[in-house]
Nucleic acid binder design. Structure first.
Lengths: 101, 101
DNA sequence: GCATAGTTTCGATTGTTCTAGAAATGTAGT
DNA sequence: ACTACATTTCTAGAACAATCGAAACTATGC
């Protein structure tokens, strides 16, 4: 996995609201949640949320798909796994300090 | 692990130069590397590097310790493990899409 | 085709980060 | 003390990010 892309994804994950949103979507499962549910959980103005969701989407961490009037946000597991893989393999492979105890 | 702190650490890791520096230090092992070695690898001006190392240090991702005239930068494994733990446990626990295939 | 609910885009403001040259500081050897 | 080396702090401009109200857009049901 590419370092530049991983850095971008980490940086997008590295905002409290976006990390909360992402966690929420992951916990919700593959179908994700509509924007208004996310908004209800996070309790921030819609335009602010829209901005953050757009960033997560631009980084490939979520996708958005319409179901009727609602726009579902779904976690993109492959991207998430790539980030974890980079950290665990390309970055920390065989490092003593990071193994389970 | 705290979400705010994890977000801060992810965001600090999420800059290409900092991610490269961090990876370099991790690969170098627990003793880390002096600033000038990191600088030689990354090929950026010292003042720029100093800025980024200070940020990594402020986030607890590295420590700095003097050995004679050189300042060694060492990876902080505990912080790194906490970030990984947050992602794997608090965030993605039991999620089908993230298991090994 | 109007009303409504859901969501984004626009625009403006404020704050933060990145970058790097120049000057300053710390450390060690002679 | 002087020199050389290592590293930071200062400073400042440019670029980028966060926030949110208001207006605009999209989809559905009647």
């Amino acid at each position: 996995m590419n370092l530049e892309l991983t850095a971008k994804r980490l940086s997008e994950m590295g905002h409290p609201l976006r990390l909360r949103a992402l966690r929420l979507l992951i916990k919700a499962g593959p179908r994700g949640l509509p924007v208004n549910k996310v908004q209800a959980h996070l309790g921030i103005p819609q335009s602010t949320l829209s901005h953050h969701l757009a960033r997560l989407k631009a980084a490939g961490l979520i996708s958005q798909e319409r179901e009727g009037p609602r726009l579902y946000c779904r976690p993109q597991y492959q991207a998430l796994r790539q980030v974890l893989d980079f950290l665990l393999q390309d970055c920390c492979a065989g490092v003593s300090g990071l193994e389970e105890e």
